[in-house]
């Protein structure tokens, strides 16, 4: 029986990449009983994996199946039918007719892309100052960012609403975006990334007469592309998935983002589960595609965010 292979989670996205096999196969064959036990162990492992698979992905599949079932077909689960008999895309069109799903999706996209850009830009600027510059008040600035991490957004949402109203930004997408424009987590991730860069290169640049801005823009920022990707993706997903704050700040249904809009669709307009299911699929499929394409940045972000955040 081989010992469990522990592989660092450096790149979990590429399981098919050749894994370093440490030792050549042992010369003496293992006893038959041991080999059988190992095979049995692997079988049990796959069985358990399948159980978890059904639990995690089953709800998505059931929703997908519901969204594709024909109008004459029972969507109720008795007896459960996973594969639609008369598959149709009608309900997607119907969801788009009932509420402006596409315009909600566009609103979400604007907010999410906006947040990704501002978090990368402002987060890296602040992170660079904290990591590489010496100045009076640095500890205070750092303390302010840490303090905002301790304050749960939910505990200041009433005052946040009042603040937005006094700024005249209630019921606007800018109002949705601003509190998420640069999170302390983004700043900390950039700060840690910059601290991990060798100082020598930048010191050489100082001798060449490069100012702070040039060192940041020409040397430091291009060296932390991985962190930039992580911050961009997490800011994007966080903004896309956010529900409570857009629910509070947006009042005109024409301005809704997708999460608020989908809830609105299900609560107000329709009792047809097929249409609601189609709406949820529209909201979640783009994100699932994003995730399956860029998995390794997601996993890396969880590691860095949880450990250092």
């Amino acid at each position: 029986m081989s010992a469990p292979t522990t592989i660092p989670l450096a790149d979990p996205a590429h399981p098919s990449a050749p894994t370093p096999r440490e030792a050549p196969a042992p010369v003496t064959p293992k006893p038959r009983a041991l080999r059988l036990r190992a095979a049995g162990g692997t079988g049990v492992r796959y069985l358990l994996l399948l159980v978890v698979l059904v639990v995690t992905v089953g709800p998505f599949l059931w929703q997908l199946s519901t969204s594709l079932k024909g109008a004459g077909e029972s969507v109720f689960g008795y007896p459960p039918q996973l594969l639609p008999h008369e598959p149709t895309l009608d309900h997607y069109a119907s969801a788009a007719r009932t509420v402006p799903v596409l315009s909600y999706a566009f609103n979400s996209l604007l907010v999410a892309v906006g947040c990704a850009v501002t978090n990368c830009l402002f987060g890296s600027l602040a992170g660079y100052a904290l990591a590489r510059m010496r100045f009076r008040g640095r500890r205070i600035a750092f303390g302010i960012f840490l303090a905002t991490m301790i304050i749960p957004f939910e505990s200041i949402m009433v005052s946040e609403f009042l603040m937005m109203r006094s700024l005249g930004l209630n019921d606007t997408l800018v109002g949705v975006m601003l509190p998420l424009a640069v999170t302390s987590l983004s700043i900390l991730l950039f700060r840690n990334a910059f601290l991990g860069l060798p100082r020598e290169v930048e010191e050489a640049a100082v001798l060449d007469g490069a100012g702070e801005w040039q060192r940041y823009a020409r040397i430091a920022l291009p060296s932390v592309r991985g962190t930039t990707a992580v911050v961009a993706i997490f800011s994007f997903v966080f903004a896309w998935d956010d529900f409570l704050w857009p629910l509070i700040v947006l009042s005109d249904p024409a301005h809704y983002t997708l999460t608020v809009g989908i809830q609105y669709l299900s609560g107000t307009f329709t009792n047809d589960q097929r249409v609601v299911a189609a709406g949820t699929m529209i909201a979640v499929v783009p994100l699932l595609l994003l995730f399956f394409t860029l998995q390794r940045y997601f996993f890396r972000g969880v590691g860095e965010g949880a450990v250092k955040g």
Binding site: L53, T56, F60, Q63, T259, Q263, T280, L287, L290, Q295
Partner: peptide, 16 residues
């Protein structure tokens, strides 16, 4: 696949 529910928003999860 085990990670995929994390990516979905809570509203999507709630409706599902």
């Amino acid at each position: 696949v085990f990670y995929s529910p994390v990516v979905a928003s809570m509203v999507v999860a709630g409706l599902i």
